[in-house]
């Protein structure tokens, strides 16, 4: 026989404290105020559509002249070299930096957080700001771009490598220490092989990110295809710009396909 009394129903707002409710309302209000100040209105969107269509019309067809294609091929090669060299140097430098900042592994002990803070600083400053700094210090061109990618990669890989090291299996490390292995041997013999898939994945993401970043560095004079794009827009050469955008899209897509395939092979 079923109990005639209804079962107590849980509170619909259960778990939401007054403080959480107030925080939620505040965040919602901030979003609304921000949208009111800076988001496009429907009228602005409606006005912009014809302009956009006119621009797309002036971009078509993309410029396929042989001279122009040869010039952007060289710029694309330079862009790729900036990404590859910057990412490679950054990945290599990230390994010792990650080791120094990894909790439980760092030879610096409690000082590891200082290295972690340094890596955070590298990551927090946007790549275009780094590019401006390096253009100001080493001058216009690809070297400034390579240095930007390097610093950006250290900020990204330094963090992910350190987290992978902290999450590595503890037992093999203890076994190697019991054998008499020093810190460096534990790192090279036990930690790195264990986290190799994670290192490779992070490195491939860094390379992808480097290719995407390197195409825009030219906008501030740090070399690569971005420089051509800026010139094309500055001189209203929209057919050139559309060709450059298509090439950039193809390069980034190709890079993502390659890294996806490589990632699938890592086990």
């Amino acid at each position: 026989m079923a109990d005639p009394r209804p079962l107590p129903t849980p509170d619909r707002m259960g778990g939401l404290s007054p403080a959480s409710f107030a925080a939620l309302v505040t965040v919602g209000a901030l979003v609304l105020v921000s949208m009111n100040n800076v988001a496009p209105s429907l009228g602005q969107l409606a006005d912009g559509v014809p302009g956009m269509l006119r621009l797309v019309g002036r971009m078509l067809p993309p410029n396929t002249e042989a001279d122009f294609l040869a010039r952007i091929a060289l710029r694309i090669l330079e862009t790729f070299q900036i990404a590859l060299a910057g990412a490679a140097i950054g990945i290599v430098l990230s390994l010792p930096i990650a080791w120094l900042s990894a909790r439980g592994l760092s030879p610096l002990g409690r000082g590891a957080f200082l290295v972690k803070a340094f890596v955070s600083l590298l990551r927090t400053i946007p790549d275009l700001v780094w590019a401006l700094l390096f253009v100001a210090t080493v001058g216009l061109g690809a070297v400034a771009g390579t240095m930007t990618i390097m610093v950006d990669t250290i900020g990204f890989c330094g963090r992910f490598f350190a987290e992978a090291m902290e999450d590595a299996e503890r037992e093999p490390q203890e076994a190697l220490r019991a054998i008499g292995a020093n810190r460096a041997s534990v790192l090279v013999g036990g930690v790195l092989p264990d986290i190799m898939p994670s290192l490779i994945n992070s490195s491939l993401f860094a390379l992808e990110k480097a290719v995407r970043s390197s195409v825009v560095l030219g906008l501030v004079g740090a070399g690569g295809i971005g420089q051509e794009l800026k010139v094309a827009f500055d001189l209203f050469q929209y057919r050139n710009a559309s060709m450059i955008i298509l090439v950039i899209f193809a390069i980034v897509l190709l890079m993502e396909l390659c890294t996806d395939k490589l990632r699938a092979r890592v086990r």
């Binding site: 299996e169 292995a181 041997s185 013999g189 264990d194």
Partner: peptide, 17 residues
């Protein structure tokens, strides 16, 4: 053992130190 390494490398790890 360091699982991603070969058996031979794992045994050679015994010579660390």
């Amino acid at each position: 053992l360091v699982r991603r390494r070969t058996v031979l490398s794992n045994v050679i790890h015994g010579l660390f130190g």
